[in-house]
């Protein structure tokens, strides 16, 4: 009898405060934006009377899928994305009743190729990275396409070090990998005449060649965990790693970023756009939920405040690269008015 009572008491404690309307913002989306969104959410929870938003790290694609699944409190209010929403996703949203969506661009993120600072810093062009990592590359005479035959960096260019090509990077499910493919590999491949010709004759093969990454050990998929890549680079001086700028920023005493076309991945270079491998980060707000779920507008103003995303804001401390002051001003106004996105 005593035991039954104890169990009943426990259960009633567990289910206390049940079944009431949601009074907490729910955010899903990109793992790249996650560290920034969580920082804002925590500050928001501490400085306002609203509850701290719950943020899930689902990846950009997964987040938009959840976001676009409908209107109502069981669906998330905001989704983070490390790329822009696609037209097809806007259409899915509209089909499910999510008609008005506000887009907020929050800043930039650089993708770096880096190695242990016990080795030499190297300077690469996008073409050289393509030759090192692509699955299929132009042959020596440049007339045909062959499986990647480069095994050391110096085979690509004699000025590069004579070490084995070994690059640790994210798997295809990662947004960082998507961006790296798009910004480096796909851009570089067009500069090889034999691949550029392919674009006219065989579009599918062209795409496959440009996005294909070698699988013979030159490129190692190290999982979604960037900290793991950092630790592996420390242990292996000859290896290189691909990850977001914030991890290089935190580990500057152990790692160095490689120069891309002569530009080092620094805060300033990414911010002014001279570092070539950077992308924009966004979040999207469901306008229909503003007013229903408390605090969304206040969350927006916290995120777009200078103390958060400004040049010296707390997000910059975490590795977010701010936009220019004029662009920030424009986005802030659009966000305050909940100007719906049109594509």
């Amino acid at each position: 009898m005593k035991k039954t009572l104890a169990v009943a008491a426990l259960m009633s404690v567990a289910f206390a405060g049940a079944a009431q309307a949601r009074d907490q913002i729910r955010i899903v989306g990109s793992s790249t934006v996650f560290p920034f969104a969580t920082a804002v959410a925590e500050e928001f929870g501490k400085t306002t009377s609203f509850k701290t938003p719950v943020i899930e790290s689902t990846g950009s694609g997964g987040g938009l899928k959840l976001f676009c699944s409908g209107v109502g409190e069981q669906h998330p209010d905001i989704t983070n994305a490390s790329r822009r929403i696609k037209k097809s996703e806007v259409e899915t949203c509209a089909k499910n009743g999510v008609a008005e969506v506000t887009e907020v661009k929050i800043g930039f993120d650089g993708i770096v190729l880096s190695n242990s600072n016990a080795s030499d810093q190297i300077d690469l062009t996008k073409e050289q990275i393509f030759l090192a990592l692509a699955k299929i590359v132009p042959s020596k005479d440049g007339k045909s396409l062959v499986d990647n035959f480069y095994s050391t960096w110096s085979e690509i260019d004699p000025s590069l070090p004579n070490v084995k090509i070994e690059v640790l990077g994210p798997p295809p499910t990662s947004g960082t990998r998507d961006a790296f493919t798009e910004l480096v590999l796909e851009e570089a491949c067009e500069s090889f005449p034999v691949i550029a010709d392919l674009e006219k004759s065989n579009k599918d093969k062209f795409k496959a060649v440009c996005a294909g990454v070698r699988e013979d050990g030159g490129y190692v998929e190290a999982g979604e965990n960037d900290n793991l890549i950092v630790q592996k680079l420390e242990a292996n001086k000859d290896a290189f790693g691909i990850f977001g700028f914030s991890f290089l920023d935190q580990n500057g005493d152990k790692l160095q970023g490689s120069l891309i076309s002569g530009v080092a991945p620094t805060f300033e270079a990414i911010s002014d756009g001279s570092y070539p491998v950077s992308r924009s980060l966004y979040f999207y707000v469901k306008n229909a939920h503003v007013g229903t779920i408390p605090g969304i507008q206040e969350y927006l103003s916290e995120f777009t405040a200078e103390k958060a995303w400004g040049d010296e804001g707390y997000l910059a401390d975490r590795g977010l690269i701010p936009m220019s002051a004029a662009e920030r001003e424009a986005v802030r106004n659009a966000a305050a008015n909940l100007a719906p996105l049109s594509m």
């Binding site: 969104a37 929870g45 701290t52």
Partner: peptide, 17 residues
């Protein structure tokens, strides 16, 4: 089911995030 999330508040019951 959405339990891999950043949650600051200590949950007060089985229905809280």
């Amino acid at each position: 089911i959405g339990m891999v999330a950043f949650i600051v508040d200590v949950p007060g019951g089985a229905l809280d995030p």
